[in-house]
Design a binder for these strands. Structure first.
Length: 268
DNA sequence: GCTAAATGTTGAT
DNA sequence: TCAACCTTTAGCT
């Protein structure tokens, strides 16, 4: 589900369907009833993605803030919208379409100061126009934590999650275990460029695919889902490049996957 | 049918 | 470092 690419794609979709229109807001589940009532019927001015956060500007200093967390999802559809099924925190509707929001970590109303508080916690976002390579390098190279932990820190780079962490470090042939500050500016800038490329591809494809076609299994049938990654969730399977078994270990509270063969100095 | 894990973050220990 | 929170799904029985 959601790393930064998902959020930016949702922002595009929701901009197309809801911006400039009067939007109906309801909370079938009831947990966001007050917020929905306050915004109901207003015109949506703008949808802005930042890292893994979504901001819906309804004017009058009222901003809907959504963070999907690990399980949150938006389900889109055309009118007539069906009876809400399951726990729908928020439904957005126009006369033509609707989306149902389930399981978000955050679905709240913020004033401009609240928006600023969220944004201040975030580092540069590779998917934004104002995303800055040098600022990313500055923040990354200040960390003494392992590289694989620093990349998960949203204050270092906003929008990167567990899949992009594992896959980008593999593609850079960098060990997740070295201190972030030890990799040097050249590697930091290369990491930024790669993340930018991977995340943009993710927005376009609607999913994370990092493998080169030459490294995907050769089959006549349709591509399998697990062809999409080099190391993510491939514990114990042979590395697609060097055949060393892929290893897994918890780092920064999440399962980190890496190839000890390709990513030098990464014995754990 | 049940359990564990999942592309995440926060707040307490 | 760990539990809590929100929900769905894959992989067991």
């Amino acid at each position: 589900m959601p790393e930064g690419h998902t959020i930016h794609r949702l922002a595009k979709d929701h901009t197309a369907h809801f911006v400039g229109r009067s939007v109906r807001l309801t909370s079938p589940q009831g947990r966001f009833a007050d917020g929905a009532r306050l915004l109901d019927g207003r015109a949506l001015l703008r949808v802005e993605p930042y890292g893994k956060h979504l901001f819906y500007d309804f004017g009058a200093e009222r901003v809907l803030h959504v963070h999907l967390g690990l399980y949150g999802s938006f389900t889109p559809g055309s009118q007539p919208a069906p009876e809400p099924r399951g726990l729908v925190r928020l439904r957005l509707e126009t006369s033509e379409t609707y989306v149902d929001l389930r399981g978000p970590t955050a679905c709240e109303l913020l004033d401009p100061a609240g928006v600023a508080r969220v944004r201040d916690r975030l580092g540069p976002d590779p998917l934004r126009r104002d995303g800055a390579a040098t600022e990313f390098a500055r923040r990354l190279l200040r960390r003494s934590t392992p590289l694989g932990a620093a990349l998960m820190d949203q204050a270092v780079v906003a929008g990167v999650g567990n899949v992009y962490r594992a896959e980008s470090l593999f593609l850079l042939r960098l060990s997740p275990f070295v201190p972030a500050r030890s990799i040097g500016e050249q590697h930091a800038l290369a990491a930024w460029a790669l993340l930018q490329r991977l995340l943009r591809a993710g927005v376009r494809a609607g999913r994370i695919v990092t493998t080169d076609p030459a490294h995907r299994a050769r089959r006549s049938g349709p591509a399998r889902a697990d062809d999409a990654h080099y190391v993510y969730r491939r514990t114990g399977l042979q590395c697609r490049v060097c055949a060393t078994p892929v290893r897994t270990e918890v780092m920064a509270g999440r399962n980190l996957h890496w190839c000890p063969g390709c990513q030098s100095g990464s014995d754990g």
